[in-house]
Write a protein that binds this DNA or RNA. Structure first.
Lengths: 234, 234
DNA sequence: CCATGTGAACCGGTTCACAGCG
DNA sequence: CGCTGTGAACCGGTTCACATGG
């Protein structure tokens, strides 16, 4: 089975997690891992992990496990991490500023090559070591840096026009933090992250499972098996 | 079919989105909506929306649509939004501060009743109008406020101990922004939001679909149908 | 003998097409 | 006649059990 036939999106998301764990193991000088150990560190089921990895073709040694550094590089290659990705970020309120200053992006090969805001009060300020630019410069920056990813952290009202601007400028993928569904041209990928929705799902689960009692509800010998099929490395 | 037999989690997440759209429509004085219009505003397929709503029992008028205010209240009730939810937040770096100051939570019935940080430098500061408290006060605050939701925005290294602390204090649900898989006792719900993973999925999709050409790749009459099956209200 | 790799059952969720009702 | 509500097909992803091979 060639590594061609397209990798499921759910698998891609998990590969990113495996990659992070593997990087940590490699930095710790670890040589090999078993699927079981890697799976528990990533919070997934071992069989599922092996199935995920099977999409990249055989990359382990039977009876032994996976070679940490090799597997890391393999996944990094599949995910397109060998080359850095240029991103632009629009909207530097609290959330946007947090994203601009978040070290986790840079260390994973993503670089913000442009920060933009419509507010004159913010333009010119430095955020995360980079200057905030006016919206007028967006097209130019996207063109010269060949940025392919745009991150929207604006108020909901302006998210759609910003999206239009980004796609017109040549951005091919958008990560949207504004609480609105965006319309984008065909071929442009949009991912939505909605903080309030996450919280509301939790509140619902609480309501479902929770109304049993307000306290002392650790009735059953619960701690035997984690509800979350997760464990950090054994 | 009673509204009992449990609602799928995927549906719950979308109900939260419908609720937001409905609130907007209601504020705009709108009386009724059809499934088609609501679906396009929420970025989903009309049939799927109707199926989602079917979980709450019949709540529309055939041949007409849904009564906006009624449906809003119905969903709000199912989601447990009638009563405010007390949350505690741990970790007030850039991201945590952004979350603490984010208006979208308060307006949806979530209130941060406690902000905590381990760094003495941050303790005592005001964030989003609330004081940052030392970790020592966590148990007490959770107990007195009956907070059921905990949000973790700490560095990855301390996320697990913080999680342990929160669950020990009585928190039943956790929203984790730290890039690690958490282990929690049975019955505690954990949701993971991983910003880097989102970006990596986008980068992968770019790589898959993208290597065709760097520019001028709007070859086909693309704008005819949005790739994202979305549209804001027609 | 151990851990990988994978075909096949399984499951939840999505889509479709139409029945039901104002 | 229009739009809701839903049973049934469909599909992708997950889990399981075992065959494969160092």
């Amino acid at each position: 089975m060639q590594p061609r036939p397209r990798i499921p999106e759910a698998t891609v998301a998990r590969l990113a997690v495996y990659l992070r764990v593997l990087s940590g193991l490699a930095d710790g000088g670890r040589g090999t891992v078993s699927s079981g150990e890697l799976a528990s560190a990533a919070g997934v089921n071992p069989a599922g992990l092996r199935k995920d990895l099977s999409h990249l073709g055989p990359c382990g040694v039977r009876g032994v496990g996976y070679e940490v550094a090799t597997l890391r590089d393999r996944i990094a290659g599949v995910l397109g991490m060998e080359t850095a990705h240029a991103c632009v970020l629009v909207g530097l309120g609290n959330l946007g500023s947090a994203l601009a200053g978040y070290g986790g992006f840079g260390s994973r090969g993503f670089e913000f090559v442009g920060l933009f805001d419509a507010s004159p009060a913010r333009v010119g300020q430095q955020v995360g070591g980079r200057p905030v630019r006016p919206m007028e410069e967006l097209d130019e920056v996207v063109a010269t840096t060949r940025a392919t990813i745009g991150v929207i952290a604006t108020p909901a009202e302006v998210a759609q026009p910003v999206c239009d601007r980004l796609t017109a400028a040549g951005v091919r993928s958008i990560l949207n933090f504004a609480p609105v569904a965006l319309t984008a041209p065909a071929g442009v990928h949009v991912r939505q992250v909605d903080l309030s929705v996450e919280l509301q799902v939790l509140a619902f689960l609480d309501k479902q499972r929770g109304p049993v009692s307000a306290l002392g509800d650790a009735l059953s010998p619960a701690a035997t098996r984690p509800a979350t099929p997760v464990g950090r490395m054994a």
